[in-house]
């Protein structure tokens, strides 16, 4: 599959994402510069983590105006797969490609730690290689990862099965104590209604090798590979028959 990894000024996880995709998973990766205006022929785009424009303004608020974002928006409108991790998630929310917003963590401090997230839905282009209810061990590292949205949006996310990942404990229980940053509904990852744009705060690219951080994060990328980069409607029908759901 052909992936594009965007580098904004201040992106920190772009190289690691490219390394995981290319070096560990054998995928084709094009590095995209924020001043680019076209993407080229791609199957999926990654907006990586970091501190675009220093996050001196609201996180992601500057990056969404980068020249490349018009191309990313067009790509998403055409059904292309887009994943935003951490700062990438924040940019997607700022760009309006995902609902909700990410605000400062509950205790107002940066948090770097291993976390567990529960896979709420496997009929997605981003989790089709997981079991439903599966607990993934993937680290977080962010100061502004508290997911918020108004009540109506949250309802719509629930009913539309757009909540893909929730923070949980090692046994998969979603509790107040397992929510590291105060996110509403313990939301760690959401997709858009169409199912081709996905944002998550935990970093799958830092859980892709046993030596450093484990391998649970690979499942996110491998799910995208399995979906072949085609838009979600096709993915859902293509994968539903294959995936055995339930732990």
């Amino acid at each position: 599959m052909r992936w594009g990894v965007v580098t904004f000024p201040g992106s920190n996880d772009d190289a690691q994402t490219a390394f995981v995709l290319e070096g560990l998973l054998g995928e084709k990766v094009a590095r995209l510069w924020h001043k680019d205006t076209t993407l080229g022929a791609l199957d999926a785009v990654v907006l990586p983590g970091g501190f675009s424009y220093g996050d001196y303004l609201r996180c992601g608020a500057m990056a969404r105006f980068s020249p490349i974002m018009s191309a990313v928006e067009g790509f998403a409108a055409d059904g292309g797969l887009v994943i935003g991790v951490c700062n990438g998630f924040q940019i997607l929310c700022e760009a309006g490609l995902l609902p909700g917003a990410l605000v400062r963590n509950r205790d107002l401090r940066f948090l770097c730690q291993r976390t567990h997230v529960r896979v709420e839905d496997t009929d997605t282009a981003f989790t089709n290689r997981c079991r439903r209810g599966e607990v993934l061990d993937i680290p977080i590292k962010h100061g502004e990862g508290c997911y918020v949205a108004d009540a109506a949006t949250l309802d719509a996310l629930e009913t539309g099965r757009q909540i893909v990942l929730r923070y949980c404990d090692a046994e998969g229980r979603v509790t107040a104590g397992s929510n590291p940053n105060g996110s509403l509904g313990s939301i760690a990852g959401v997709r858009n209604a169409r199912g081709n744009v996905f944002g998550m705060m935990p970093h799958p690219e830092y859980a892709a090798e046993w030596l450093v951080g484990g391998e649970d994060g690979r499942k996110i990328f491998l799910s995208m590979v399995a979906s072949g980069g085609v838009s979600s409607d096709a993915v859902v029908s293509a994968t539903r028959s294959k995936v055995v759901s339930g732990p």
Partner: peptide, 24 residues
């Protein structure tokens, strides 16, 4: 150390909390 990003770069093998840090 929870306030420090120990992962970025992808090379950290032993994070804070052991005798020494180990990076690839």
């Amino acid at each position: 150390y929870r306030q420090y990003d120990a992962y970025v770069g992808g090379g950290t093998i032993v994070r804070p909390g052991s005798d020494a840090a180990v990076v690839r």
